[in-house]
């Protein structure tokens, strides 16, 4: 494991752990953004440039801003009056620790610890475009349909109800 991987992994873990444990919701979203940028750096180290840049564009540029707007509109911004963690926080954390233990045991016992690293695959955006148009054309159309439905659905769900005039 190289130094760059350790730095990016530390950044990601710090950001996401802070996101799930800070009291102020806006601080949580900002540290989540740091964690997501760390993940994008990891994607770039793995050689998936397109996915890394798309991750920054979509998550940092859209989802984080959407979450921040939602926090502002539900008036949860600022120091919260009620406690930040729910009453059942102990059982929740215990479940998460058990899940991590099971996953870690499965990973370390199932995969052979081999040092043979395959060469870096060279993927260009042309190949991704070709794949999207030929092999993955049907999922592309379905995603278009799904995004349209989500767009219309989100607007309708969040629209304030029309007040009836007396």
């Amino acid at each position: 494991m190289t130094l760059f991987f350790l730095i990016a992994a530390a950044l990601t873990i710090a950001g996401t752990a802070a996101a799930m444990s800070l009291r102020n919701p806006i601080h949580c979203i900002l540290s989540l953004t740091l964690g997501l940028v760390g993940l994008a750096v990891l994607y770039l180290q793995l050689g998936a440039q397109f996915v890394g840049f798309t991750q920054v564009l979509v998550y940092v540029g859209a989802v984080a801003i959407l979450a921040v707007f939602a926090i502002m509109m539900t008036r949860s911004a600022g120091s919260p009056q009620q406690p930040a963690f729910s009453r059942s926080w102990l059982s929740g954390s215990a479940v998460a620790v058990v899940v991590f233990a099971v996953l870690a045991w499965a990973i370390s016992s199932a995969l052979p610890s081999t040092k043979i690293v395959p060469p870096q695959p060279a993927v260009s955006v042309n190949q991704i475009g070709d794949a999207l148009m030929h092999k993955f054309a049907l999922p592309l159309e379905i995603i278009g349909l799904l995004l349209t439905a989500a767009l219309i659905g989100a607007v309708i769900v969040a629209m304030p109800e029309r007040r009836e005039t007396p």
């Binding site: 996401t16 954390s93 870690a104």
Partner: peptide, 21 residues
């Protein structure tokens, strides 16, 4: 392992935080 750790951090957040967002 890193991915499993991130998954369990997210799971801990889902199960313990009060704010729906």
């Amino acid at each position: 392992l890193l991915s499993a750790l991130l998954f369990s951090i997210g799971l801990a957040g889902v199960l313990t935080r009060r704010n729906a967002i």
